[in-house]
């Protein structure tokens, strides 16, 4: 499925956080949104997913959901948002409980998702018993259990340490290759953007406007090699130039505020 954003502006009270955003999210792509802290990245994602209130009709969705889809637009959250009183399998099962489906099928779906995220042996564990990386795997498994048409990932790796981040990123890519689910991925980490993105949307500091959209014109499987690295270094520098100035000013503004 696809998302279209036309002329999206958003305010918190008097504060303009997003200004005239035009954006298309195309079928089967990973669109990464980067920008300095407080530029409204997460707000944009919340509006796309319908959990941040937005009066207008600036966001539209099109296309047919894939078979078995129970929640066309599903989130993966920065803080994992797991229910601490539910076990791993019950956290994943939570999003299916209110859907009409036979118990057996529900169990199968949960099991399948757990297996794909390498969580099967921890199915009975409580969130507090898991590492941060494992918890986010649960978060991803939960989103996948609804067979979404569009995945919205809100800085999914930023609460994790660097190694876990790399590992989970690889696993996510492996997983993604199977279904090629359309994804909008918000981050402030350039490496994540370069590793995952088809296109990178660079937002300005507040109010968030689209500064540029940079296409990463290299297939993901070619990005790991030496040639790929050299290519990505160039894109990296370009992106860095785009956000460096913004980030510096945004930083000062935070001090001033």
């Amino acid at each position: 499925m696809e998302l279209f954003v036309r002329g999206l502006s958003h305010r918190y009270g008097d504060l303009l956080v997003l200004d005239s955003i035009d954006l298309d999210v195309r079928e089967g792509e990973i669109l990464v949104v980067i920008g300095p802290s407080g530029c409204g990245k997460s707000t944009l994602l919340g509006i796309l997913g319908g959990i941040v209130p937005h009066g207008g009709e600036a966001v539209r969705i099109a296309g047919e959901p894939p078979p078995g889809c129970l929640n066309p637009v599903s989130f993966v959250f920065q803080d994992f948002s797991l229910l601490p009183w539910r076990s791993v399998e019950d956290n994943v099962g939570l999003v299916l409980e209110h859907q009409r489906m036979p118990t057996g099928e529900r169990r199968e779906r949960v099991e399948d998702c757990l297996r794909r995220m390498g969580l099967l042996e921890f199915r009975k564990a409580l969130p507090k018993q898991l590492s941060g990386g494992m918890r986010q795997r649960v978060g991803i498994a939960r989103a996948l259990a609804t067979r979404p048409a569009i995945l919205l990932l809100d800085e999914p790796l930023s609460a994790l340490d660097a190694q876990t981040r790399d590992l989970l990123m690889e696993d996510f890519l492996d997983l993604w290759k199977r279904d090629r689910t359309t994804a909008v991925y918000v981050t402030h980490n350039l490496n994540e953007a370069l590793r995952l993105a088809d296109r990178v949307v660079v937002l300005t500091r507040r109010p968030g406007r689209i500064r540029d959209i940079v296409k990463v014109g290299l297939p993901r499987e070619d990005r790991a090699g030496a040639a790929g690295q050299a290519f990505l270094a160039e894109v990296h520098d370009r992106l860095w130039e785009l956000i460096k100035a913004e980030a510096r000013i945004a930083d000062r503004e935070i001090v001033d505020a």
């Binding site: 319908g50 129970l70 599903s74 959250f77 948002s81 229910l83 009183w85 409980e97 939960r142």
Partner: peptide
């Protein structure tokens, strides 16, 4: 954020109350 999570997965109001708010407030 837990409540928003529930809503983002289309959980009905009563389910959010029963499965998220009640145990969270326990």
């Amino acid at each position: 954020n837990l409540i928003r999570m529930g809503q983002s997965f289309n959980m009905p109001w009563l389910d959010v109350l029963r499965k998220v708010v009640l145990p969270g407030a326990m």
